[in-house]
Computed example of a mutant assay.
Amino acid sequence: MRKNTLKEKIDQKQKVFGTWLMTNSQDNAEILGHTGVDFIMIDAEHGSMDLESAGRMVSVIRGTQATPLLRVAGNEKSLIKKGLDTGASGVMIPMVNTEEEAKDAVSYCKYPPVGVRGMGAGRAVLFGAAAEEYEDYYAQANEEVLVIVQIEHYEAVENIAEILSVPNIDIAFVGPYDLSTSMGLPGQVNHPDVIKNFQKVITACEKFNVTPGIMTWTDGIEQHLEMGFKFLLGGMDGAILYNGVKQLVTEFNGFTK
Rank of each mutant, 00 (worst) to 15 (best):
R2H: 13
K7F: 11
Q12R: 13
Q12E: 06
K15Q: 04
K15V: 13
F17T: 05
G18S: 08
G18F: 07
M22I: 11
M22E: 02
N24D: 13
S25L: 14
D27E: 12
D27L: 15
N28V: 11
E30I: 12
I31R: 02
G33V: 13
M41K: 03
I42T: 13
D43N: 04
A44R: 10
E45T: 08
E45V: 09
E45K: 05
H46P: 06
G47H: 06
S48E: 07
M49N: 04
D50C: 11
L51R: 07
S53L: 10
A54L: 05
M57S: 12
S59C: 06
T64E: 01
T67F: 06
L69C: 04
V72M: 12
V72D: 03
N75K: 13
S78N: 10
L84M: 15
M92T: 07
M92N: 03
N97D: 11
N97V: 05
T98Q: 03
T98G: 02
E99R: 03
E101Y: 00
Y111T: 01
V114I: 15
R117L: 12
R117I: 03
M119C: 13
G122T: 14
V125G: 05
V125S: 07
G128T: 10
E133S: 07
E135F: 05
E135Y: 10
D136N: 10
A139R: 14
A141L: 11
N142A: 11
E143W: 10
E144P: 11
L146R: 04
L146F: 14
V147S: 00
V149P: 00
I151V: 10
E152M: 03
H153Y: 02
Y154N: 00
E155H: 06
I160D: 00
I163K: 05
L164G: 07
P167Y: 08
I171V: 15
A172S: 12
A172Y: 04
V174W: 09
Y177G: 08
Y177A: 10
S180L: 09
P186S: 09
G187K: 14
Q188W: 04
P192C: 09
D193P: 05
V194P: 02
V194D: 00
I202G: 07
C205D: 13
P212Y: 15
I214G: 02
M215W: 07
M215E: 04
W217P: 00
W217R: 03
T218N: 09
D219S: 07
H224T: 04
L225R: 01
G228Y: 00
F229S: 00
L233M: 07
D237C: 12
I240L: 14
L241M: 15
L241C: 13
Y242L: 13
K246P: 03
Q247I: 15
E251I: 12
F252N: 07
N253P: 02
G254A: 14
F255G: 06
